[in-house]
Computed example of a mutant assay.
Amino acid sequence: MLFHFKNIFPQLNSFWDKYLAYQQRMEIPAKTILLEEGKVSGQYIFIEQGCVRALFNNNGDDKTVQFFFENEGLTSFESFMNNTPSLFTIETLEPSVVYLLPKKYVLQLMDELSHEPGFLQLLLQVSSQRQVHYINEFVSFIRDKPEERYQKLLKERPHIVQRVPQHYIASYLGVSQVHLSRIKSKLAKGKSHF
């Protein structure tokens, strides 16, 4: 969790050292489940290396909700905070190195950090950035055609297209792999006319 803020909030280095002992560093293969849908989230996950996705099961089909990469952290937030079953599964897509910090220490750390000048303001900024991102994704899913969403992905988050297998991108866009292939083919033809 601290990685989110270390570069812009150097006061955190001492906290990082203090809480390092409570974090479990794991080197894990692709397709490793870090949290299963329906289970209660008790860990905050930070990605040092690799790619992770959040997904849910829809009548036997995996629906990808979000991708996470290096220097990003995640958990099933509602499950983590309210001790309720997670709506999502969290799974690695690449061989990854992650840190897990149990909830007990996350809460203790947040309590300590809340006394650091400027930290709560920073936390609110980060939280609002994430909220705006998710709202934009939700609106785009309703408003935009799959082709538009794919073009937006290429423009704004090309690393996803470069690193994530196509069937997961199709799932993320809400289309079949065949439909995604058609979108890519159409875009390639459009480029060749210029």
Rank of each mutant, 00 (worst) to 15 (best):
V40Q: 05
S79Y: 01
Q49H: 15
L100E: 13
P95W: 07
S192N: 11
S79M: 03
L120N: 07
E78W: 02
S76P: 03
P165D: 08
S14R: 06
E37H: 04
F194I: 11
L20C: 10
D144V: 04
L173H: 01
L101F: 08
P85A: 07
L122K: 11
R25H: 13
G118C: 03
N83I: 10
E148S: 14
I8K: 15
F77E: 09
L2Q: 01
Q23K: 13
I28H: 08
K191F: 14
T92Q: 02
N59E: 11
T64V: 10
I142S: 02
P146T: 03
Y150L: 06
Y150H: 06
L124R: 15
K155M: 09
N7K: 11
K191G: 04
E137I: 00
Q151N: 11
V132P: 04
F56N: 08
E36K: 14
K152Y: 09
A170L: 01
C51L: 11
Q23E: 10
L101Q: 05
S41G: 09
L100I: 07
E147I: 10
S171C: 06
L109T: 01
F80Q: 08
Y99N: 08
K103G: 06
Q129F: 13
V52D: 06
Q43I: 10
S76D: 15
K6D: 08
H193W: 12
F3I: 11
I45M: 02
N57I: 05
G38Y: 00
N71A: 13
P29H: 04
T89K: 05
L109K: 00
V139C: 08
S171T: 05
T75Y: 03
R163E: 14
P146E: 02
S185F: 05
T89A: 06
L120Q: 07
Y99V: 00
S41N: 09
I45R: 04
L124Y: 12
I47Q: 04
S192T: 11
E137W: 00
E48L: 10
V40N: 02
V40D: 02
Q11T: 10
K155G: 07
Q162L: 12
K31H: 14
S176T: 14
S181C: 09
I160L: 06
H167P: 07
V106R: 01
N71M: 09
S176K: 12
A21H: 11
E72H: 04
A188M: 07
K155E: 15
L113N: 03
K63T: 12
